[in-house]
Design a protein around this nucleic acid. Structure first.
Lengths: 197, 197
DNA sequence: TTTTAATTTGACAATTTTGTCTAACAAAAA
DNA sequence: TTTTTGTTAGACAAAATTGTCAAATTAAAA
């Protein structure tokens, strides 16, 4: 008999991702996840066997998603600056929806060990770094280790969103004003990373 | 009778901070903390009553430490660029020792609520932002909302260290090479934030 | 409709984690 | 030395969290 595919398995995973990646509740229990999904906690065991396996599935999904996004963005058939603008658009959007995804990944790696990372493809990143090096020779971007360039890019994109709860208070910004600031950052980052044309 | 002050209370807190802030094990249990400190788990209850209170104490300490560092750095009696260089030195050193301190703060805020932040002093930051605005008028730094300038600064400083476990793999860097890269970032950040002299 | 199998659920069990209590221990004071 | 009190540790209890099982439900297949 084929699966009925009621969507519950996906619902559980999506709900867990919302709690973990969007709301940043990294200690979420199976009960909290089940409640948020509106299903009995047993369903979680039916589909994933155990909490650890659910977390492992979410971890793998997130790693694969990150790998896929990197591969798509880094190897897009675009000139370097346009490619970088696309990276910013894609990652900024993703960070706004799921600011704590990378934090979750790192926390899991820190608690379970680095062997969790087995399948992250570094090829696409390598080729982007090579392009960045070429741009530096051309003089369109500052001379530096290309790894710095990429770390700068991701830092400027991601960190403000990860630290939003702290920074909103520190800078005394309303939700609305903070969002407006974040929306400005795409352009601003381009301006910082590329020399004035 | 005076306290014997065996240092155990401080030892427990320091050990917990090491696990949480340095090793990034945000799910550390009381047993793990006690074991790492080499004390009986009961000692933890003797000094802090409960796990929640220990976490609360650590949270308050971290917030106060952050506040203090901000106040000291932001109001130092130095010209703007030197002040910024000092901020970089101070925060880079701290991030190298405790990369997950801010992550811990944000995670706690996300799980327990924003009312956790009651006593962060925004005055010193405000005055630094004002100075940054003045520099923009003078033209030594790019024109932008000063909040962006400060978010850029902290992002460039902090994010690479927080994401080290991921980035080392993604960039295929040994511990040694990664450390060397991080050590370069102070200068690099200054170069990015300040116009060529 | 009846059958069949996937799904969902509630009750219960096991495990993990946290918290308490009492006694042992250690060091300063009497 | 004896007393006193802060500290530490082991045994036990409670609570929270996770895991299991069997029955009920649902929807597709026969």
């Amino acid at each position: 008999m084929p699966l009925k595919n009621t969507g519950t398995e996906q619902l559980i995973k999506d709900t867990a991702k919302r709690l973990l990646f969007a709301e940043g509740k990294l200690h979420a229990t199976t009960q909290e996840i089940a409640d948020a999904a509106g299903v009995n906690r047993t369903a979680l065991h039916y589909y994933f066997r155990s909490r650890d396996l659910l977390i492992a599935a979410i971890f793998q999904d997130a790693m694969q998603d990150l790998s896929r996004r990197l591969a798509e963005c880094m190897t897009a058939d675009l000139p370097f600056k346009a490619k970088t603008e696309n990276i910013i658009a894609v990652f900024l959007k993703d960070m706004m929806a799921f600011p704590y995804q990378e934090t979750f990944l790192v926390t899991e790696i820190n608690t379970l060990g680095k062997q969790l990372i087995n399948n992250i493809e570094s090829g696409p990143v390598k080729s982007y770094l090579k392009e960045a090096a070429d741009e530096m020779k051309k003089g369109t971007i500052e001379q530096m280790n290309p790894v710095h360039f990429l770390m700068n890019l991701f830092s400027l994109l991601s960190y403000p969103l990860i630290m939003a709860p702290l920074y909103q208070k520190l800078f005394q910004l309303s939700d609305k004003n903070f969002k407006a600031l974040i929306a400005e950052r795409g352009q601003l980052i381009i301006g910082l990373l590329f020399r004035e044309q």
